[in-house]
Simulated assay, not measured.
Amino acid sequence: MDCFRGRRLSAALIAGCLAAVVLGYVVLHLAPAAQAGDQGPVALFSFAGLIRRGEKGDRVRYLQEALRACGYEVSLDGVFGPMTEGAVKKFQRENGLYADGIVGPQTIRELSKLYYRANPPDKHTVRSGETLSTIAGRYGVSVETLAKINKLADPDMVYVGQVLMISTPQEPPAQEPPAPPTDLPPKPPPFPIPDRRVCLTFDDGPDLNTTRPILAILRQYGVKATFFLVGERVLRHPELAREIAQEGHVIGVHGFEHKSLSGLSAAEVRRDLKEARDAITQVTGVSPYLYRPPFGQLDQTQVAEASKLGMRVTMWTNIGGADLGAASAEDVTARTVSAATDGGILMLHEGLQYTVEALPSLIEALARLGYGFLNPSK
């Protein structure tokens, strides 16, 4: 080099020439020129000069944006003042650099690594003078990682304009299974071996507020029941009807609109029962074979038309049901238990909160009396 010509050179001159050589190498090899359109910290990371206190402009603002993105408190005013200098010194100390507050190539390189770890880019276009090693260093990843992501047989062979993936697509976080309900009763205590049987039945569903809690309680106690569903409500809440069927409960017909069919013509009764049956079958895949008349109002026309559609009438043995007009959950339990008989059919209703609240104690009280619960499908 020209600066080394001559016999007598001062130490300062030699040091200056060496610094120029090092800086030139950094500019050519370690910090490729910014591409057109680079903005923000990305433009800063391609800069190979020095930034120090007193400077102003976009480059200082890019520095401030990078520092803030990495968790350092600094104003975004484009002025390299005391606050920015303090943030730079703190960054340098925490990353093993000489804390002089001056931003040079080494500080920029370490800042870029931290920035890209916090804000990983998807891609990088290879520029003149870059190698896989310098690209890996820029983004704070290993050469092996870049080679693996991009399926490079020879890590030394990259070319200008080549687009490299920097990070792999993130898999969506696995969804945790929903937490089990917290309002279920405790695991039931051991009960006597049942020597009598009752059948639990529920009318008027499916109901948006009570069907799922009822199903959860029945599941907790291992009890199967019969649900007499209203066709129109099945079409309104098909997911609830399907859940009833999937839990293994028997489904019966309770009319299409829950209106009294007593006194109607055979054609009118047949149309209502068929619409209800078809709605249940369409939604659940189950063909119901039981029919319970709305309000318990039954006549021979309904019996005959239900039979023609393959359904038999099923009433109940606890007169009027146990939960209609009940004053409390305790009242529901007392009424139901007092009406229980061997082979009895106990009627309850969806849509009543007292029924949900009473169900655990009702099941336990019947079990203590030696009642088992008949699976109606058998």
Rank of each mutant, 00 (worst) to 15 (best):
R8F: 09
S10T: 15
A12C: 04
A20P: 02
L23C: 09
Y25C: 14
A36P: 14
Q39V: 12
G40E: 04
G40L: 10
F47M: 00
R59Y: 12
R61T: 06
L63Y: 04
A69R: 06
A69Q: 00
G71A: 01
Y72G: 03
E85K: 03
V88Y: 01
K90L: 13
K90N: 08
R93E: 15
G101T: 08
V103T: 06
V103I: 07
G104K: 09
P105W: 04
Q106C: 07
R109V: 07
P120M: 00
P121C: 06
S128M: 07
G129A: 06
E130Q: 07
A136K: 04
R138Q: 12
L146Q: 10
A147W: 08
K148D: 13
I149A: 02
N150Q: 09
D156P: 03
M157R: 14
V158P: 02
Y159A: 14
V160M: 08
V163M: 09
L164G: 10
M165I: 00
E171L: 13
P181W: 04
T182A: 12
P188V: 05
P190R: 12
P190N: 08
P190A: 11
P192Y: 01
P192W: 03
P194V: 00
D195N: 10
R196N: 02
V198M: 07
C199Q: 13
C199T: 15
L200H: 00
F202D: 04
F202P: 07
T211V: 00
L215K: 10
A216Q: 13
R219I: 00
R219D: 14
Q220P: 00
Y221S: 06
K224P: 03
K224Q: 10
T226W: 01
G231N: 04
V234G: 10
R242H: 05
E243V: 03
A245Q: 10
A245R: 13
Q246E: 14
E247C: 13
V253R: 08
F256C: 03
H258P: 05
H258I: 08
L261E: 09
S262W: 09
L264S: 12
A267C: 06
A267S: 14
E268F: 14
E268R: 15
K274Q: 15
E275F: 07
Q282W: 12
V283D: 04
V286Y: 14
D299G: 05
T301Y: 04
S307M: 03
K308E: 15
L309P: 00
T314R: 07
T314A: 15
T314C: 12
M315I: 12
T317D: 15
T317M: 00
D323Y: 09
A326R: 03
S328K: 05
S328Y: 08
T333N: 02
A334M: 02
R335A: 11
S338R: 14
S338M: 09
D342P: 02
G344S: 15
I345A: 00
L348I: 06
V356A: 02
A358S: 08
L362K: 00
A365Y: 01
L369D: 14
F373Y: 06
L374W: 15
